[in-house]
Write a protein that binds this DNA or RNA. Sequence first.
DNA 1: CTGAAAGCGCTTACAG
DNA 2: CTGAAAGCGCTTACAG
Lengths: 344, 344
Amino acid sequence: MSATLKDISAKANTSEATVSLVLNGRHYNRVSQATRQKIESIAREMGYVPRRAAQVLATGKTHNIGVILNDLSNPFYGHYASLIQQRLWDNGYTCLPMETGASRDRQRNLLAWLPQKSVDGIIALEGLWDGDDDYLDVPLAAPFILRHQNQGKPTGEYSHVSVDYEHGVTQLVAHLKEQGWDKVGLLIQPQQLPHVDELEHPRTRMLHQAMHVHGLRCPDKWWYPAEESKSMEHWYQQTIALLKDHPQINVLIVHNAIATPAVYAGAEKAGRCVGQDLAIASFDENSFTPWLRPGVTVVHEPMQDIAQQLVDLLLEQIKNPNTASKVIKTKTQLIVRGSTQRAR
Amino acid sequence: MSATLKDISAKANTSEATVSLVLNGRHYNRVSQATRQKIESIAREMGYVPRRAAQVLATGKTHNIGVILNDLSNPFYGHYASLIQQRLWDNGYTCLPMETGASRDRQRNLLAWLPQKSVDGIIALEGLWDGDDDYLDVPLAAPFILRHQNQGKPTGEYSHVSVDYEHGVTQLVAHLKEQGWDKVGLLIQPQQLPHVDELEHPRTRMLHQAMHVHGLRCPDKWWYPAEESKSMEHWYQQTIALLKDHPQINVLIVHNAIATPAVYAGAEKAGRCVGQDLAIASFDENSFTPWLRPGVTVVHEPMQDIAQQLVDLLLEQIKNPNTASKVIKTKTQLIVRGSTQRAR
DNA sequence: CTGAAAGCGCTTACAG
DNA sequence: CTGAAAGCGCTTACAG
């Protein structure tokens, strides 16, 4: 429909090659001012728009990046998607978000599909699998960066940005103890791993370790699982059950702050009063955590930094495929709010 | 790097054309069983993956759809993105979400950029402009569908899915009146329109009309603006200000349920008790509206239906470019929760 | 400083 | 039932 290089070159009495050079700004001292200006003005007046597909075919670069995440309707991933797409856009790349719905199979499929979707690189926000190492099974058709939550594992063969829960979690546990909350119930999001203990999420592991160090009580029986974030009802029910079954508990740590409104409601239903006889803490800051009453104490990761590093690392790797894989660690931070402070 | 049609055809002793036909399933009675199976097995063992770019260049179809929305980190849009991408994926299309950040200029830019990004069609979730008609200024390089919130305007030249607020809003106003809430304060999200009254959002207009019919009091002075959803602090402050300035108010209607946690906090700060001496209602269901205490009464649109219709309408138009533009209306619905019910 | 030409990897009439 | 060939719209050595 619209103009092509050939059309322009015809009108400008030059070759397609020259037009291409000018329009891509690769005309150092190669093209004369006169032809250059002529070409530019003709291109403008013809409303020339390059066909991406032709460029992609000729150059082998798509300028597309696949971003694998659980679920765009979850604001945690939505926020990441937003941050990443922003930074990609600023670097001339387009972001293709791919939802896995937290399903392992679907994630595997996506990874296999992505080459067809033609991307120059892949960012995965979540490794669902044990040590994330299953990624290595999949033929990695493109540079790959992972947001990695697994402390203990070695670096592996690909770069990743590692979320270090230790700092924030240690702060949290110290803070709880200092406020006199000492009997911890856990609301856990089960991992979908057949052969791994379902409680073995890095968050859980770090918590467990820190609680041990600080002498907080948290027997295994006080760890209740709850389904993926979609089903708030389940979090509500599990909160009630946990508090009814183990009335000694005076702190609830919730795997994911998305669920806290339901947990607050459950605590109330169970006859508890947050800030008085029950503390609640969680992970991941979001738009409402400051506004629930009382506000939710959370351990949160520096999402903006992480998004930036994921993108930068990936683009660096695309530009220079031979660089060794890198690992960047980022620290989590505790944000204290009313939910863990003893009401005066 | 990986195999091409030529490689396969060489190994199978056939032509590229035949391979292409087989691999695309377009081999009715054109290709013999034998060659077909040979080709398929060779393709499999060579791990053949078609280059999208080459297909796009040859066919002119990208199977990409641009989705224009304000902000992925807002769960309202995130949820839409999720629904739309799901349905697109099921139809073999990829979804390219493009954030405008609610900026008119950026939206305009995006529309201009999209052809370069090579999309087969465009879905816009929000028309920021007066009557959405400015869309017509922009050269529409591809089939286009709009989620349209503007009741009064005529259909325009392109298809859209129209959100009909009338039903839900009428239900809301009747419900409020029945519960004895009669003095309405509005927290409004200003539109970024230079020459249009900033309060003229379709939601506001429908509300105003319905309140008039049912005789609820809501003078213009009780309409306070609040910034875009990002700044919850501002909603908090405006809630306090509105309630302090006009203590007669006994209902607050909030433009967007994302803001309700801050509004609840503001109401508490202003010495009000939701469900006792103040009702709160809002628009758009989300994950926490059922769980705030009391739960938030909302007017909500059938997001799943709308997403589906947006996609289906667009794909239909892509398949058949000559069909006349269509308008589909969808009804909003009231969900009553504690926030508007008189505590017994 | 500029042009002719090959090539990127497919698809699609067309001819047999 | 199958193949040869043109074409999609660019980019990039290469030769002048």
